[in-house]
Amino acid sequence: MAQPSHKPRVALFVTCLVDIYRPSVGFSAIELLERAGCTVEVPRAQTCCGQPAYNSGDRADAKALARQVIEAFEGFDYVVAPSGSCAGMIKEHYVELFADDPAWFQRAQHLRHRTYELLSFLVDVRGLERVEARFEGTVTYHDSCSGLRELGVKQQPRRLLASVGGLELRELPGAEVCCGFGGTFCIKYPDISNKMVEDKAVEIEATGAGTVLAGDMGCLLNIAGKLKRRGSAVQVRHVAEVLAGQAASVPPIGEA
């Protein structure tokens, strides 16, 4: 695609899990966005997209948090999140929350059209075809549910990973099956969640890959927690770290 002449201003929606658990994913995202010709800013007034409240049936808190996000992220060319789940919440569900509130509905609509998950923004909006990065080893990829089914994130990470020197991608059977994280689901139904992630871990190990990648911290924490408990040597990372060439500088998730 033709590059616009000016540098688009992108606001990074950090996501609460990246903020607390893994800032390196946020910095990798910024690195990738800057290399793709964007100016990146991080609005200070962000906390959470409101999904835990929304999916718990608490519409009032979900709306309050949605208003907070809408206000904090107005005025940018784009909003990008290193998570299909949070981007999906902003893109697909805010409008549902404000279906009976025309003023906020319109603002939610406006935000919706400018919000993207990181990989789909890089590939679909910025037209990125390759990255400058090396990663020695075999990786497999888990497709996070919201990114996959709400936002159509499937080929974008694979296309960029194909350009990483030294990296071999081995597809994961059942890559599109949920890992069992599910936000508050893993708290409410730990036995089922644990069973689901065990099945996922077994399939990951069976690929023989040295590293498993995904685009959502929730899934990654869940998968890493299970693999490490099983004593597995498979390393777990957010795909942005590998694409930004920053994997060498931070330990994998759940390792020191």
Partner: peptide, 17 residues
């Protein structure tokens, strides 16, 4: 519920913010 069957990966230490 979580740590019954899984480890909890530790945060990197400081928040992104």
């Amino acid at each position: 519920g979580w740590t019954g069957g899984r480890d909890m990966p530790a945060p990197q230490g400081k928040t992104f913010q």
